[in-house]
Design a protein around this nucleic acid. Structure first.
Lengths: 337, 337
DNA sequence: GTGAAAGCGCTAACAC
DNA sequence: GTGTTAGCGCTTTCAC
């Protein structure tokens, strides 16, 4: 059985077979310079026949563009990284750019190792990504010989960053509840030291303030357990109870919904619930299925990829932190028709 | 503010600064040939000082080794791919090998595009990965000019493949139940057309047959909903009821546990439950937390990475499909102390 | 021990 | 239009 480890055809083989010089072959293949259309077609046909593919290493050496970029992430689990990286990759593959994925596992040594490998490989740019917006790289990205883009992370002021618009996402959720007539809306969310948590909470308060309604935020751990605990707490205090709960994560929302059911309250007729993340495995399987906010991570990745493309091509790119709009996904837990 | 886009130091700069020729600098840096130890140290020191890093493109062009490999996956969601790729990457980063991640999204055009980009970039090898063992690549990997390794996928007989040992994993689960005294063990699992589902079911039946106990397998869709439905079905038939349920996925197990609770049965005192996957977001948050089987995906990725390393270095690698052992993770739903 | 020269595969000036 | 030449950054004979 052929292992297929035959030597690969080079442009010399093409030139030889076509009876032209290497440079003519190159010109013909790349449509550069003046080439007789007949020779050009012949060269192209022969290249196709012998399965010639240009060596990107050689090209890169000359052009100083490797057509590859690196994505550095601290996320091994993949919930945020993979959709985002898929978006990046999708934006770039049509331009022949491939993506090195480097998971640092929050280990500075690993981060440094990966970074050095990327630099050696002459990547055209680096995208830094993290599990939380206020996470900082374990390596110095401030003076690299190539552009750096931050995705789901906030870089320094003179950099290009893309983050989900947490404020707008929270507003989307709360305004949805308000439009359905809910007024006593509670916010159960994650730990206050997450910047995203604070932004969502602030936006939530803003909406209720504008309506002249009271607001209340309960900070806690991420996860379902906190949802249970929070519900127990509020149900054991005097009336009036909230008529809707906006949760800072789908996991918390799931905990909230389960706890409400345990207490004999039904969602959404007794209390409506909206989550945040649209993490399918959670949101689609709560009972009832969860109305939630989608951060559009893939699109965020696509935007980051396109910005990187522009940067590598020397096109002007607006600096600063760009907030990407979230969208509302309506399921049964609130507002389904 | 410096953008840092200064021209990078080449080996010529090092040679110039050290007052030696380029070839001597090269020898010194790589410890090749005969070099005066004093010159060698000087060259190395100067290289360090001016921040010289060898250009991997130039090196690769010469050595025909790019020190990069490609991972092709159809998984955009990331549950399986990312831990595995992290394992691959972890095994390789210390050897200076970086990993291109290519998500095909099950689109043949995209798969072809990615494959061509990888070939052009002279990757030293390709690892193919999928969301299910019996998924086939959308591109022809049979006669590539570099080695191919299959991870969580079964390649042709003359290839190197790593898969979880589904049979052993299932046995682990069932034997755990048996050792705890359970005898009427039911298996609620996924769709029968998955090879992994069939293997787990066969191993399950084998264990019960060996004990002289009856076995029963219920195939269905993956997901929690199927868990609910299956429980409703069994509880509405005549006695005797199972005393334990082995589920083919954590999601199904979660559905089963929730449904049992709805019916006033408690886990594990009335019925014990074991899952499969150890998908943290599911397994850790069921009530009670789920005893389940871990497929060791990261380790599987590491093994695949190491095999790839050997292949690229021309070392002998055993062909065929290697099954990687699963492990039992004990939580509250069965067997916790 | 060290350096000059050749060449990996490709592209871009510049003659012809 | 086409071919010759030079060179991207590096490693590797092979003289000296």
């Amino acid at each position: 059985m052929s292992t297929g480890h035959r030597k690969r055809a080079t442009i010399r083989d093409v030139a030889l077979a076509a009876g032209v010089s290497v440079s003519t072959a190159s010109n013909a293949l790349n449509g550069q310079g003046r080439t007789n259309s007949e020779t050009r077609d012949r060269v192209k046909r022969i290249a196709e026949e012998i399965g010639f593919r240009p060596n990107a290493l050689a090209r890169g050496l000359l052009s100083r563009r490797s057509h590859s970029i690196g994505v550095i992430t601290n996320d091994t689990y993949g919930r945020l990284t993979l959709p985002m990286t898929a978006g990046v990759s999708e934006a770039l593959v049509d331009h022949g750019v491939s993506v090195f994925l480097c998971a640092t596992n929050n280990d500075p040594r690993l981060a440094q190792l990966h970074l050095e490998a990327l630099l050696d490989k002459q990547v055209d740019g680096i995208i830094f990504t993290a599990t939380r917006l206020d996470h900082t790289p374990h390596v110095d990205l401030s003076s690299l010989p190539m552009p750096v883009v931050y995705a789901f992370a906030e870089g320094p002021a003179n950099s290009v960053s893309f983050v989900p618009d947490d404020s707008q996402g929270a507003r989307l959720a709360v305004e949805h509840l308000i439009s359905l007539g809910y007024r006593r809306i509670l916010h159960i969310t994650g730990p206050e030291d997450f910047v995203a948590v604070r932004r969502r909470a602030t936006a939530y308060r803003g909406c209720l303030d504008a309506m002249g309604e009271k607001s209340e935020v309960m900070f806690g751990a991420w996860g379902e357990e906190w949802g249970h605990e929070a519900v127990h707490r509020i149900l054991s205090r005097p009336e009036p109870q909230p008529d809707a709960i906006f949760c800072g994560s789908d996991e918390t929302a799931r905990g909230v919904i389960d706890a409400l059911r345990d207490h004999g309250l039904s969602v959404p007729s007794d209390i409506a619930v909206v989550g945040f993340d649209n993490w399918h495995v959670v949101a689609a399987q709560t009972r009832p299925a969860l109305t939630t906010i989608d951060m559009g991570l893939k699109e965020l990745g696509r935007k980051a990829g396109l910005a990187m493309l522009d940067l590598t091509q020397g096109k002007p790119v607006e600096f600063g932190i760009k907030a990407i709009g979230c969208s509302l996904v309506i399921r049964k837990s609130c507002g389904a028709v």
